[in-house]
């Protein structure tokens, strides 16, 4: 029996570029360069490794996002995923985490799945809660924030490094997993992979396909409201000295002045 893996990937503004808000206080996704969230590359990588171990597996990458989000899907396909689903609808603009989890859960159910793999957090929203929300909606175990993961005989096992302890986790499939950037370097797409990706199927679904009403998502369906977004004033230029042999002492002097010593 084939192992059906769905990897959720997000298209995000490039963190090294200039990120900002649009007039309606949503993240500006039109005016900036975007890419596959680096943290989701780790999810694709673990999916590929799990699929390698399984007798027969199929990896679907899923994204919810604007037209350009196809770039993120292409990247994941060129790494080796088999097919892609792009959920796109004008009414999705401004959807919050709770709304996004609804769309992801409906799409995952429609696609069919044994295992969902997500990144630990998106690099723009950085909430790190969607995998938990998707698990809640699907009613399946959440096995999240894993630094190590393996699947065998319908059971997923992994290591979760928490604040106060490192835990070994175990759950039966179907399940929702998320992996951290400690789970193992993601591979680069090969030239062959990039060429092959061009021929892989990318399906497009809209809200109607998922039987979701427009008012359940989008800015109006959002359960949170952003009142304002202000650019933080640049930090005032500090004092910079060149060490001429007394740099440590000068720094100590500064710390005394600030009452840290």
């Amino acid at each position: 029996m084939s192992l059906r893996i769905v990897v959720t990937v997000k298209y995000v503004p490039d963190a090294t570029g200039d990120r900002h808000f649009a007039e309606d206080l949503t993240v500006d996704r039109d005016d900036v360069d975007g890419l596959l969230s680096e943290l989701d590359e780790y999810a694709v990588e673990q999916a590929l490794q799990i699929a390698d171990e399984a007798d027969d597996a199929e990896i679907t990458v899923l994204t919810v996002g604007p037209e350009d989000a196809k770039d993120a899907l292409r990247k994941a396909l060129s790494m080796g995923a088999d097919k892609a689903i792009h959920v796109e609808d004008d009414d999705l603009h401004g959807t919050d985490a709770i709304g996004t989890s609804l769309v992801l859960a409906k799409a995952i159910e429609k696609a069919g799945y044994d295992l969902v793999i997500s990144g630990m957090a998106s690099t723009d929203g950085t909430m790190g809660v969607l995998p938990a929300l998707v698990a809640e909606r699907l009613g399946v175990p959440q096995v999240t924030l894993l630094s190590e993961v393996s699947v065998a005989d319908g059971v997923v096992k992994g290591r979760r490094d928490g604040d106060t302890a490192s835990e070994q986790l175990e759950a039966s499939l179907p399940a929702v997993v998320s992996v951290t950037d400690q789970s193992g370097e993601a591979r680069y797409p090969s030239f062959k992979g990039i060429m092959a990706a061009k021929k892989k199927p990318v399906q497009s679904w809209d809200l109607e396909d998922l039987e979701i009403e427009a008012d359940e998502v989008g800015l109006d369906g959002s359960w949170t409201t952003v009142d304002s977004a202000t650019e933080r004033p640049a930090r005032t230029a500090g004092t910079i000295v060149k060490d001429e042999g007394e740099g440590g002492k000068q720094l100590a002097e500064f710390l005394v002045g600030q009452k840290f010593i």
């Binding site: 500090g238 910079i240 000295v241 060490d243 440590g248 002492k249 720094l251 500064f254 005394v256 010593i261």
Partner: peptide, 28 residues
């Protein structure tokens, strides 16, 4: 990192940091 600092020392940390540590210990 120097764009963010209140105080920055341009120098070799192997020189600056031990000197700073010594100075703190002396003052304390």
């Amino acid at each position: 990192i120097f764009d963010l600092v209140d105080y920055g020392v341009v120098g070799d940390l192997f020189e600056v940091v031990p000197q700073l540590t010594e100075e703190i210990k002396t003052r304390k």
